[in-house]
Measured scan of single mutants.
Amino acid sequence: TTVKVNGTKYKFDTPEEAQKFAKKAADKYNLKVVVDGDDLRVE
């Protein structure tokens, strides 16, 4: 599972880890998590 934040992709072994990271990033930058198929985007 990958998470894309500000054009940078981060790869995670499990969707749970990816979800946690995406949520933290979204909170930090005051953005929202967008599900894109198997991957997540923070925008």
Rank of each mutant, 00 (worst) to 15 (best):
T1Q: 07
T1I: 12
T1K: 09
T1C: 10
T1V: 13
T1S: 08
T2F: 12
T2W: 13
T2D: 03
T2L: 08
T2H: 07
T2C: 13
T2S: 08
T2M: 08
T2V: 12
V3E: 00
V3G: 00
V3P: 01
V3M: 00
V3Y: 00
V3H: 00
V3I: 03
V3R: 00
K4A: 10
K4Y: 15
K4M: 15
K4S: 14
K4H: 15
K4F: 15
K4V: 15
V5A: 03
V5T: 01
V5S: 01
V5I: 15
V5M: 12
V5N: 00
N6F: 15
N6K: 07
N6Y: 10
N6R: 10
N6M: 13
N6D: 06
N6L: 14
N6I: 05
G7L: 06
G7S: 05
G7P: 00
G7H: 07
G7V: 03
G7K: 08
G7I: 03
G7Y: 05
G7N: 08
G7M: 06
T8L: 12
T8N: 10
T8P: 01
T8Q: 13
T8F: 13
T8D: 06
K9Q: 11
K9S: 14
K9W: 12
K9R: 12
K9N: 11
K9I: 15
K9V: 15
K9A: 13
Y10E: 01
Y10L: 05
Y10F: 10
Y10S: 01
K11T: 13
K11I: 14
K11Y: 15
K11Q: 11
K11E: 10
K11A: 08
K11C: 14
K11N: 09
F12Y: 01
F12D: 01
F12C: 09
F12A: 00
F12E: 01
F12I: 01
F12K: 00
D13M: 09
D13N: 13
D13V: 07
D13G: 10
D13A: 13
D13P: 10
D13K: 12
T14H: 04
T14D: 08
T14S: 12
T14W: 02
P15H: 10
P15I: 12
P15G: 04
P15N: 07
P15Q: 09
P15M: 14
E16C: 03
E16T: 07
E16M: 08
E16H: 07
E17Q: 11
E17F: 03
E17V: 03
E17T: 04
E17D: 09
E17I: 04
E17N: 06
E17H: 05
A18T: 01
A18V: 00
A18S: 01
A18Y: 00
A18W: 01
A18N: 00
A18C: 02
A18F: 01
Q19T: 08
Q19G: 07
Q19S: 08
Q19M: 15
Q19D: 06
Q19E: 10
Q19Y: 15
K20N: 11
K20F: 10
K20Y: 11
K20M: 12
K20P: 00
K20I: 12
F21Q: 03
F21N: 02
F21Y: 04
F21G: 02
F21P: 01
F21D: 02
F21H: 02
F21R: 01
A22M: 03
A22V: 03
A22T: 00
A22G: 01
A22W: 02
A22I: 04
K23H: 10
K23E: 11
K23M: 09
K23I: 08
K23W: 07
K23Q: 14
K23R: 10
K24P: 00
K24A: 14
K24E: 14
K24Q: 14
K24S: 13
K24R: 12
A25T: 15
A25M: 15
A25E: 11
A25F: 15
A25G: 02
A25I: 15
A25V: 15
A26K: 04
A26T: 03
A26F: 02
A26D: 02
A26Q: 04
A26S: 06
D27M: 09
D27T: 08
K28N: 07
K28H: 12
K28L: 12
K28D: 10
K28T: 07
K28P: 03
Y29M: 11
Y29S: 06
Y29W: 11
Y29E: 06
Y29I: 05
N30I: 03
N30S: 07
N30Y: 08
N30A: 07
N30P: 04
N30T: 03
N30W: 08
N30R: 09
L31R: 05
L31Y: 08
L31D: 06
L31P: 04
L31G: 15
L31K: 06
L31N: 05
L31W: 11
K32M: 12
K32L: 13
K32S: 13
V33G: 01
V33D: 02
V33A: 02
V33Q: 02
V33H: 00
V33W: 05
V33T: 03
V33L: 07
V33N: 00
V34C: 07
V34Y: 10
V34K: 06
V34P: 01
V34I: 12
V34M: 08
V34Q: 07
V34G: 03
V34S: 07
V34L: 07
V35S: 09
V35F: 12
V35D: 07
V35A: 10
V35R: 10
D36I: 07
D36S: 07
D36L: 05
D36T: 05
G37M: 05
G37E: 04
G37W: 03
G37R: 04
G37F: 04
G37V: 04
D38R: 12
D38V: 12
D38M: 11
D39A: 10
D39M: 14
D39K: 05
D39V: 14
L40M: 07
L40N: 02
L40W: 08
R41M: 09
R41G: 04
R41I: 15
R41P: 02
R41K: 11
V42S: 02
V42A: 04
V42D: 03
V42L: 14
V42N: 02
V42M: 06
V42C: 05
E43R: 06
E43L: 09
E43F: 08
E43I: 13
E43V: 14
